[in-house]
Design a protein around this nucleic acid. Sequence first.
DNA 1: AATGAATGAGGCTTCATTCAT
DNA 2: GATGAATGAAGCCTCATTCAT
Lengths: 198, 198, 198, 198
Amino acid sequence: MARISNKKELILESAYQIFKEKGLEDTRVSQIVKKAGIAQGTFYLYYNSKMDVLPDLAQQIISNYTQYLTEHGDIEAGLDANLRLAIDRIFEVNQEDRTIPSIVYAGITRSGDIDKWKVIYRPLYDLIADYLKAAKANGEIREDIHPDYYSEFVISLIESTARGLILFQHSPEEVEKYKEELSSFILNAVSWTPIKVI
Amino acid sequence: MARISNKKELILESAYQIFKEKGLEDTRVSQIVKKAGIAQGTFYLYYNSKMDVLPDLAQQIISNYTQYLTEHGDIEAGLDANLRLAIDRIFEVNQEDRTIPSIVYAGITRSGDIDKWKVIYRPLYDLIADYLKAAKANGEIREDIHPDYYSEFVISLIESTARGLILFQHSPEEVEKYKEELSSFILNAVSWTPIKVI
Amino acid sequence: MARISNKKELILESAYQIFKEKGLEDTRVSQIVKKAGIAQGTFYLYYNSKMDVLPDLAQQIISNYTQYLTEHGDIEAGLDANLRLAIDRIFEVNQEDRTIPSIVYAGITRSGDIDKWKVIYRPLYDLIADYLKAAKANGEIREDIHPDYYSEFVISLIESTARGLILFQHSPEEVEKYKEELSSFILNAVSWTPIKVI
Amino acid sequence: MARISNKKELILESAYQIFKEKGLEDTRVSQIVKKAGIAQGTFYLYYNSKMDVLPDLAQQIISNYTQYLTEHGDIEAGLDANLRLAIDRIFEVNQEDRTIPSIVYAGITRSGDIDKWKVIYRPLYDLIADYLKAAKANGEIREDIHPDYYSEFVISLIESTARGLILFQHSPEEVEKYKEELSSFILNAVSWTPIKVI
DNA sequence: AATGAATGAGGCTTCATTCAT
DNA sequence: GATGAATGAAGCCTCATTCAT
């Protein structure tokens, strides 16, 4: 049973490597299959085009965020700690591979099934929403915020800021500063009272 | 004076139309030149590929935001009014043309000259920063916020939220709701005290 | 075994026909594949451009000289007879197809691998050198000539003279006269005593 | 009057530089005019195509040989000295610029007017023929040789050997050896008695 | 004579996709 | 399922050439 998706795993893995190396546009199916060590035709047994693997790849990336935060986060630790964990992780992943924003962006854009995307992001949104709800419950943040909306804003903001920093090639010091400011921006958006930037 | 890049203007205009109509990938240089009424070779006098016009197009889009807000905004009207104006405008433009996020995104990503991008976004960031500074000055918002960082967050957040709504095809009512929430999110991030969502 | 490069053979054969018919510059890959009855893309599976087939074609031509002389020549018949056979053959082949000099010339020039060319001409040079050595052995020619150098001169001279005659469009009578003179020139270059031109 | 051909000279000079640098095929008219500092259209005032300048260029090259030998040669010095001068010069020129054979070859091949070529080479052939005639007159060489044919063989042989050495990238020592052997080959072809290779 | 922006035909080449093995 | 040689549609882009100034 696990064997069935063996080739698909190979394709996914290889495609990711090539995308990372060459970029989305300059990646060829021939390169992917070469790296995967499979025949050209085999690729089409699993995907209809190179762009067709993007949704799967993006799903992995988003799922990894959720998984990481679930494993390393602690709802008891407070919103600020969990938020900082999310920021650190998303920045880190984006920093490590500059094509991730494109993969996720193109993945969403091209996916025929938009609902699929809601599903992909849902767990991550829910996780953030849970943080917000917990924070609400223990009075850490305001009662009138709407976790379902705010969680989307939080993720969007972290992702787009991380992407921008990479595009504009900021120094590590600047990146740290951005993380601080971003963290304070978000916390202030939800807090009872202003949070002072350290 | 305008005559100098007469042909370039034509290309830019036509390219935008086709991109809007067909999308980035499905646009052909042949379609652009046909619409522009120029020869195929002429295109390559000004751009190296269809993707090469994206940076110029994106510049126009971002500049238009700045121009619109400068013309219609009123620094005296208060942060909330100006912020709402920015949200409305960016949402409106994105709603009207779903390829705008892709154009801007691909435009930035592909531009060899990253500094150029900072320059393009700078006026818009500065404008938002001015709003924040004015609001700070008249006590509308907290004193400890950093307009230079926050202005970037505000723009990023509005743009990415607008894009997301389009991708996920929300209803007009939902869009309005998102605008409300987004507005409150941002205002809360900068205010002395929580702003109640109406 | 021959099946392996079945398509390659086809391309080679067709390319030669078209080159002969249209000339090097006016040959189109589309014409070659049409004649070969294969798809345009198939051509690029074996060669990178139409000029890329020239080395292979030139190799065939040179090899054919060697093969012809090996089959029809007779080392016992004396240097003059074998020399005359070479002259006749090279002139004949060049006369029959005027693009041969260009194919060979361009083929050598374009071949990235120069050593390959030494290998291609080697058998022909060796054959001529063998004639010279045999002639030396039986006292037909001088003892101090160096077959390895002279064999190259002989081939070069025959080829360039044949080419020149074609370019300058001499009459059949003139061609015969040139052959006589060329033969005497070469024989005199190696003989003990002057050979009288008949 | 000299002014008239000012632009033509520029084109010729620039074309030669680009041909030398890029090779025949990869030379563009645009590159030539750029180097010449003239407008694209001006080129076509003097030549119909880039290949159209080859005959003029080749003429210069061949004329230079004649001129050089006329200036530096001395008919009194004996055939061997003058022959050696010709060999040295032709080898030197070819060594210095590897595209010369191609220019001359393509120049001849493409020239619509073949007779023009005979005219171009004529002075050089005549010069060599004069050497041969003088050598015949003073008994240095045999009486039965035909200077008109032999002079062509001599030039052809030197040119093709020089070209071959360049193509096959021989070492300077090997080149010298070839020159020795070539000289002896030619001299033997015309002498009363064998010439010993030094 | 000189210019050089504009032209546009058409060859080149790619590369996703197929399908017989 | 796997293969990979073959396909061929189709778009890119060049670059010689023109011509109004």
